[in-house]
């Protein structure tokens, strides 16, 4: 019961965050919204595992937390430097 309430709260927040991602005037607002959305996804996977009484879902939540962090850093690096490679640039 309480899990359903928590899941509803998290889903509502996901809708709010997603609308900021659609509205967001700058690119950084959108990346922020996607990062926050990923955090909520981890939470809702964990809560959903408890709701359906299958604790295996926690492994998926853990993997999603890893992907979310790496994804945010990769997108930021791409926007700041223009590529995902190392320090070596073709013009240097």
């Amino acid at each position: 019961m309480i899990y359903a309430a928590a899941a509803c709260a998290i889903l509502l927040t996901m809708v709010l965050t997603l609308s900021r991602g659609i509205l967001g005037p700058t690119t950084y607002d959108r990346i922020l919204a996607v990062n926050s959305f990923g955090t909520k996804t981890v939470l809702i996977i964990a809560v959903f595992g408890y709701l359906t009484e299958r604790p295996d879902f926690l492994d998926i939540a853990f993997v999603y937390a890893l992907i979310n962090f790496i994804g945010t850093i990769a997108v930021l690096k791409f926007f700041e430097y223009g590529d995902l490679g190392g320090a070596r640039r073709p013009d240097q």
Binding site: I2, Y3, A5, A6, A9, I10, L12, T13, M14, V15, L16, T17, S19, R20, L32, A33, S36, K40, L43
Partner: peptide, 16 residues
């Protein structure tokens, strides 16, 4: 859990 849900919703309101 209810307290955590409250803070999660507050974050969602704040981001808007």
């Amino acid at each position: 859990i209810l307290g955590g849900s409250f803070f999660v919703i507050t974050g969602g309101i704040g981001i808007l």
